[in-house]
Computed example of a mutant assay.
Amino acid sequence: METIRTSKFCQSCGMPMKKDPQHGGLNKDGTKSADYCSYCYVNGEFTFKGNAKEMQAFCKEKMIEQGSSKFLAWLFTRSIPWLSRWRTKGK
C-alpha cells in the first residue's frame, strides 16, 4: 500500500496540517491535497486570490481575532513567502 506524503504545514497559509478539521483541502478530482489545508484549497482552486504579503496580513488578523498575541501572529506568519505556493509564483 502506497502512503501519500503530507506536508507538515499548509504550503499556502502555514497552518499546521494537523489543525485542519478536514485534514487537507480537496483537489479537483475529489482527492485530498497533501500540501494545502481545507481553508486554502477547495475543488482544486485556491480560496485566497491575493499575494503572499496579503496572505500574511490576512492570517495575522485571523490569529489575533482568535486570541493570539500580535507577536505570535507575526512569528507564525513570517515564513509565508517561503512556502511552496508563493515560491513558485511567477516561475
Rank of each mutant, 00 (worst) to 15 (best):
residue 87 R to V: 15
residue 30 G to L: 02
residue 52 A to M: 01
residue 66 Q to A: 14
residue 73 A to G: 10
residue 4 I to C: 12
residue 13 C to E: 09
residue 63 M to R: 06
residue 18 K to V: 13
residue 76 F to Q: 03
residue 58 F to K: 13
residue 81 P to D: 02
residue 31 T to F: 08
residue 5 R to G: 14
residue 64 I to W: 08
residue 89 K to P: 08
residue 3 T to P: 14
residue 25 G to H: 05
residue 70 K to G: 06
residue 28 K to Q: 03
residue 20 D to G: 10
residue 69 S to V: 08
residue 46 F to W: 03
residue 39 Y to L: 14
residue 82 W to A: 03
residue 16 P to T: 07
residue 9 F to V: 12
residue 4 I to S: 13
residue 6 T to L: 12
residue 83 L to R: 03
residue 56 Q to P: 00
residue 26 L to W: 06
residue 63 M to E: 00
residue 13 C to A: 12
residue 63 M to K: 00
residue 16 P to R: 06
residue 8 K to T: 07
residue 58 F to A: 04
residue 6 T to Y: 13
residue 42 V to I: 14
residue 6 T to A: 14
residue 16 P to D: 11
residue 3 T to E: 15
residue 21 P to I: 05
residue 42 V to D: 02
residue 46 F to K: 01
residue 87 R to P: 14
residue 72 L to T: 10
residue 58 F to W: 13
residue 37 C to W: 04
residue 65 E to G: 01
residue 26 L to M: 15
residue 47 T to R: 02
residue 44 G to Y: 06
residue 31 T to C: 04
residue 5 R to D: 15
residue 56 Q to F: 03
residue 66 Q to Y: 06
residue 43 N to E: 13
residue 34 A to E: 13
residue 69 S to I: 00
residue 46 F to S: 02
residue 57 A to L: 12
residue 44 G to S: 07
residue 89 K to E: 14
residue 75 L to N: 01
residue 22 Q to A: 14
residue 65 E to I: 00
residue 16 P to W: 00
residue 12 S to T: 01
residue 85 R to M: 04
residue 19 K to G: 04
residue 24 G to C: 14
residue 18 K to S: 13
residue 77 T to V: 04
residue 7 S to H: 12
residue 37 C to T: 09
residue 39 Y to G: 12
residue 90 G to N: 15
